[in-house]
């Protein structure tokens, strides 16, 4: 059951359900594509497509800010209601063909919470690493900070809640776990996730095109690398964890 609700004078939100699932993500991304100005799809009128200011997808919701001087919220909501009842929902789903291979150096010197995870889950360090890197992840959302991709789902045997109080500084590249989610911090940032390793690749740069390699729906694989490989790829070992 998809619901459409007004949020403010010029924005609405669609809720697609209460469970995180790849199918919902694909439905959301298909709608995002259809609302894009240059989309070949004619499900939404040019008037609607031209007057959308912002489209923000998340796990199970989609936020739309519209140009309220040109388009009424009722008109937009109505078009979206029609879409939710259309056969389009059960048709061909959006599916990403991209898989990102991310090298990760898993070690306490770049992953200060690795030891805690071994104690909490009564696993060896090798088992924790193995369970983290053997999973095929998907990008469910991008947000919080530029290029920050929320990946799921983490193996339940190593899923771990956030720290009660976030760290003030997490170095770029840090690979973290928060419950069933995992992610790489693209830039230095505060954050509360459990850090188990570091990926030496640059995942966000204003100079790069695209700025971030990730798109929602993409597949992600982590591959363990040695300390030497990490350093050769430009990895930096942070010595001042706060």
């Amino acid at each position: 059951m998809i619901t459409v609700q007004p949020i403010s004078e010029d924005s609405i939100i669609l809720y697609f359900g209460n469970e995180i699932s790849l199918q919902i993500t694909q439905t959301i991304m298909r709608l995002v594509e259809q609302l894009t100005l240059n989309s070949p799809s004619h499900i939404f009128s040019e008037k609607i497509k031209q007057n959308i200011l912002e489209v923000t997808p998340s796990y199970t919701s989609l936020f739309i800010q519209y140009r309220s001087s040109q388009l009424s919220g009722d008109e937009l909501s109505h078009a979206l209601q029609v879409w939710t009842h259309s056969s389009d929902l059960t048709g061909q789903q959006f599916e990403s063909k991209t898989t990102h291979q991310l090298p990760v150096y898993y070690h306490p010197e770049v992953g200060p919470d690795l030891h805690y995870l071994t104690l909490r889950h009564k696993l060896s360090q090798e088992e924790v690493v193995q369970r983290h890197q053997q999973t095929d992840y998907h990008v469910y959302a991008i947000g919080f900070a530029p290029g920050f991709a929320f990946l799921g789902n983490v193996d339940p045997h190593i899923a771990t809640p956030r720290h009660d109080s976030p760290r003030l500084h997490i170095p770029a590249g840090s690979v973290g776990i928060a419950n069933q989610q995992t992610a790489v911090y693209p830039s230095d940032s505060p954050g509360g996730w459990q850090i188990i390793g570091n990926c030496p690749l640059s995942l966000f740069s204003l100079e790069a095109n695209p700025m971030t390699p990730f798109n929602i729906g993409d597949k992600v694989k982590f591959n363990a690398i040695t300390r030497n490989e990490f350093l050769q790829l430009g990895g930096i070992i942070c010595t001042h964890w706060k």
Binding site: S8, S11, I20, S58, Y59, S61, F63, Q65, G143
Partner: peptide, 10 residues
């Protein structure tokens, strides 16, 4: 709540 988009003034 599952993380969701935030409007200005929320």
């Amino acid at each position: 709540l599952i993380s969701e988009p935030i409007a200005n003034g929320a």
